[in-house]
Amino acid sequence: MGALVEEFPVILGAFWLTVRLTLASAVAALVLGTVLAAMRVSPFAVLRGVATAYVNTLRNTPLTLVIVFCGLGLGLVLDVSFSESLSTNYLWLSIIGLSAYTAAFVCEAIRSGINTVPVGQAEAARALGLTFTQNLRFIVLPQAFRAIIAPLGSLLIALTKNTTVAAAIGVAEASLTMKSLFERHQDSVVAIFFGFALAFLVLTLPTGLFFGWLSRRLKVAR
């Protein structure tokens, strides 16, 4: 326990990074996933094809490969740079990897949400003269999102835990910090391990509860 107390600021800093990684990737994944879902239901075959290929590729590639590709491929080979600071740069590269990967799952969740919206809703919107984009924006997507709040919560929980993969390219989030603490406090490995596991629960349990509550609250009555 002593090690946990002693290293509390370090641990807090590491989890703060985990939270930032999660939130930034979640926002980006939500935006990209929504665009992909819109493409997959669009009347243009090319857009549908591109989005389908994207989802199939990213959804079926291990996250570690995606993250390593972002770190080595984008970062070192293609020299994509967001910041002078190496650690900030890898942070951004890992956000790209996490959001690109999660967006594929968000897209599929939204698509299943769209399938829960009765055809008549989109038909009535078309009959009023709404364009395809207006129809998605005002009628179909708002109802689709309300139907998939709980699964989106699960994706957010998965994303929170998936941020640990960013350690693969040296981002000092919680898991990498845990590893270095193991080395510094070899007598307290078990305590540190449970401390970190508990801290993840503190992040993810409320997320699940909150999204469950939100999904009941925003449910569309039919």
Binding site: G120, E123, A127, L128, I139
Partner: peptide
Amino acid sequence: RSEVGMVFQSFNLFA
């Protein structure tokens, strides 16, 4: 379509 109103059997009000 904006010039032609439509009323459906199942109402289709935006839920």
